[in-house]
Every structure is written in structure tokens, then in C-alpha cells.
Amino acid sequence: MTRYIIKRIAHGLLLLAVLAVVVFFATHLLGDPASLMLRPEATQEQRQALREDLGFNDPLPQQFARFVGNLARGDLGDSIWQGAPALPIALERLPRTLYLAAVTMVLAVPLAIVLGIVSALRPRSMADRLVSVISLIGASVADFWLALMLILLFAVQLRWLPTSGFGGLSFVILPALALAVRPLGRISQVVRSTMLEESAKSYVTTARAKGLAEPVVTYVHTLKNAAIPILTLTGDEAAALLNGAVVIETVFGWPGIGILLIQAIEKRDLPLIEACVLVIAVMVITLNLLIDVAYSLLDPRVRYR
């Protein structure tokens, strides 16, 4: 078990190293970092001065060595826009994005599991149809447009909730709702199909033949086995939330890491962009690691692979 976790951590670190290298070479070979940092209308002199200043004129291997050395010390350079080390700025925003993601999952996951189980138990019922409709809409709606519609209804028309910003619980409701539709649809559909799949297996028949009560068969035996694919998908959806969070944070002015990345791109602040990317990557990799560990705890078959 410990060996398995260590292996997974090593794998995650390797992935991160590869990503850092890709980011470095993409910014230094695909584009000229000095041009990437300056507005297109910047003069040749400004460009040259910046290159001298940040050492972009040095040979590439030397720059790479410096990049790796700084990275190892957690130093990604100073943000040009804010004039302070980039990594702490990005890290400071992280908890707010995690908070938004957590509220979203709290809204989506329990409801998805209940809907999925009910629709598996009663095919063609209202719950079943609701699951199909939600998952179809979740796969077809532009989440930022849904966000705009929620603002239009609940903030502009009804004036129940604030249009944007960060504060008490009332601020998190609309962004979390806008983000929750997609995971709700996907998870409920997978809960439904795995429950149906599992309930056709022979251990369920055995459980019934033993005379176990139907709720015990459904919630203890079937759900426990169905939990594994559900957990995997929930993890994937949590990672995918980061995609949505970038746009949703921008719509609601939610001061998380997604909006920071967009602002950094608009300001052409290369060190800050790199910091955001690496922080997000660490978050995704950690999440995947946690899922893998939970997976091996739930399913004894995985541990011995």
C-alpha cells in the first residue's frame, strides 16, 4: 500500500517536471519571451532592455539551468503586473477556487447519486427522465451563458443574490450553481448505468436469495461495488471544474486562480502565468493521486496490481 502511494507520488512529480519543461521550452522557443511580456506596440529598445534585464539573451541551456534552479527553490520570478514574487500571488488565490469547487461538488454529488439510484431502480420514471434531460443539457449548455442567465434572473430581476464579487455565502451560490449542472448530469448518468450494470450481476441475485431486505441489497451490496466507477468520475469532474472555473470566475468576478490566470494573460505577465499553470497542475495531480489512493482503499483488487 505504502509502496503504491510512493509510486504514485513519484509519477505525479515526474508529470510536473515534464510540464515545467514543456512550459519553459514553449515560451522560449515558440515565442520570444520578451515579446510575450510586452504589448505588441512596444518599441525595439524596450524589448531589448527587457531581454537584458531578465537574461533572455543568455544561451538557452544557461537560462534553462537558471529556470530549474529557481523552480527548485519555488521561485518563478516576479510578477511584472504586481511587482511581487509570482508564486505566492497564485497560491494566495488557490483557497478561494477550492472553496468554489467544494461548494459545487457538495451541490452536485449527493443529488446526482440520489437521482442516479432512483432512476436505476425505476426506469422510465420521472427521476429517470430528469437524469437524461439534465445530462443532455449539462453536455450542451455553455456554462458561462448559464451563469449570465442566472445573474439576469436572480440578481438583476429578482435581486435575491449579488451579481458578482466575493463575500458571504450569498456570493457563492450563483457561481456554484452554474458550475454544478455539468457534473450533476454526468455523475447521475454514470450512477444510473453502473447501478443497473451491477444489479445484473450474480452476487446481487445471491444476496436476494439469502433473503436480504431489498434496501440492504441496493444500498450495501450494489452501491458499494458501483462506488468505484462513480468515485473515478467524480474525481475527473472535480478536475474538469477547473476548466469551468476559469470562465465562471471571470463572469462573477470571483477572485480565484482562474480569473488571475486570465488577467495575467491579458497583462502578458509571463511569470504569473507560469505560476498559475504550475499551481493548477499541482492541484490536478494531487487530486488524481487522492482518487487513486481512495480507489485502492475501496477496491482490494487494485492494491495487488
Partner: peptide, 20 residues
């Protein structure tokens, strides 16, 4: 494939568009 699966696709698109 694993590397790309591990990274949110919209973020990757944003970055590549920023570069290109």
C-alpha cells in the same frame, strides 16, 4: 495522452493561444 488528460483542456487552449 496521460499528460494532456491530467491538464484541463481549456487552460491548455488559453496558453497555446497566448503563445501563438
Amino acid at each position: 495522452v496521460d499528460l494532456q488528460m491530467a491538464f484541463p483542456s481549456l487552460l491548455m487552449a488559453l496558453l497555446v493561444l497566448y503563445l501563438l
